[in-house]
Design a protein around this nucleic acid. Structure first.
Lengths: 219, 219
DNA sequence: CTCCATCTGTCAGTCACTGCCACTTCTGAC
DNA sequence: GTCAGAAGTGGCAGTGACTGACAGATGGAG
């Protein structure tokens, strides 16, 4: 075990501890009124040292609310090679959606929403992260497309738009239907995704006109 | 002429002047290194007074790069009542797209892009504005939908996703095809929009399966 | 002229964040 | 064990965005 690896572990542990302390402050007092000094003092470190672990106060916040990019990208790459982009995304999303519902993620999401409502710049940073996340996904989809059809810039744009549409659906349902039961939210998501699905077979999946009579394959 | 109206005019003139001075600084020296003090001093006012005209340095920047919400919303409302959301958006976009190409907006967009590349928080704020803008558009579309079909929450989500997809296309083409001629960019936009168009007749417009053989109606 | 509202500058202060320096600690080489 | 060097930490001063409080200027209404 190299000692640089050991250092890295203890560094991560320290970050984790600082995060937990910070989240406690954010939840009880609010994000804006919590100063870096508060967090540092509670963690028993100096303000200067805090900034050696996190480049900004925002980073502490987003550390706890990071979107799990890796998992979804892996799920996309694990799909069969010939599959069209839309069903690929749809299947890759299934497990992610389950996690989103069941975990204690709901409570944490509520805190995050409260914060974004009172401090717009946090919301703005969130949008930036979502964009980067979506870009990564669409690049993964495009890589698959290239393997099958060659590098077609037009399709790249189309894929980016699809990813954008899908996450717009998820986000909108999340916002508009907070109070509704999970089953109803799932139904809304299913309905909306089905309506947004592109007509072209090579992107939206096979059997386009026949599909309109049947049900979605999501869940 | 009431004197409060007069005051408002002179206030707007002052804002305008400050903006121009600020943009000059941003263009020549850069956004981050330009301090509020620089701008205020060049404008012949105190730093404190600057903050009475603009709530932040960011606001000065965005004053000059504001997305023109009103025009597009009006264009949407001007479309015939029975029209499906997709063609409505498509037609409303046409004039806006022309403005985007022809005007000296290109040069200003380049400056803005330069700024967003070096200061990520400006990019983040931009995303937040784009989201608000898209939300406004989709609300306008939904209002039209309600008038024809009644308030259907599912469709609201779908419309939000459509708007998101369309602007994703515009943005992606803008970014990926900066060097390409306008005609080519238009072609990419047309192709991508056509591929993203939803299959359902009541949203995507009439004659879905037949349309796939013909050309798009955009331009 | 005077009263009033509004506009403005000054000043002090908060907070996020950075650079610099000194001190400790921990590690590896000998 | 010792010593040189690397890495972690705190203190401190400083910058820049932004705010609140106060006081003087301005400019029309009575």
């Amino acid at each position: 075990m190299s000692n640089s690896a050991l250092r890295e572990i203890s560094r991560q542990a320290a970050r984790q501890r600082i995060c937990e302390i910070a989240e406690e402050f954010f939840a009880t007092r609010g994000y804006d009124v919590t100063t870096v000094q508060d967090i540092a003092h509670a963690a028993g470190i100096s303000e200067r040292t805090f900034f050696r672990y996190f480049s900004s106060k925002d980073e502490v916040l987003f550390q706890r609310f990071e979107v799990e990019t890796r998992g979804l990208v892996d799920a996309i790459q694990a799909r069969p090679a010939g599959e069209a982009p839309w069903p690929t995304l749809q299947h890759a999303l299934e497990s992610a959606l389950d996690d989103l519902d069941h975990e204690s993620a709901t409570e944490r999401a509520a805190l995050f929403r409260r914060i974004t409502e009172t401090s717009p710049h946090v919301l703005a940073l969130y949008f930036a992260r979502v964009d980067a996340f979506q870009r990564e996904l669409s690049e993964a989809l495009w890589a698959r497309w290239i393997a099958n059809h060659g590098p077609d810039p037009d399709t790249r744009v189309i894929l980016r738009a699809l990813v954008s549409a899908i996450f717009s659906v998820l986000n909108e349902v999340e916002l508009a239907a907070q109070a509704l039961p999970h089953a109803e939210r799932r139904r809304m998501i299913r309905t909306a995704l089905d309506a947004v699905r592109p007509a072209r077979d090579d992107i939206g999946g096979p059997d386009e006109c026949a599909r309109r009579a049947g049900a979605s394959s999501l869940r």
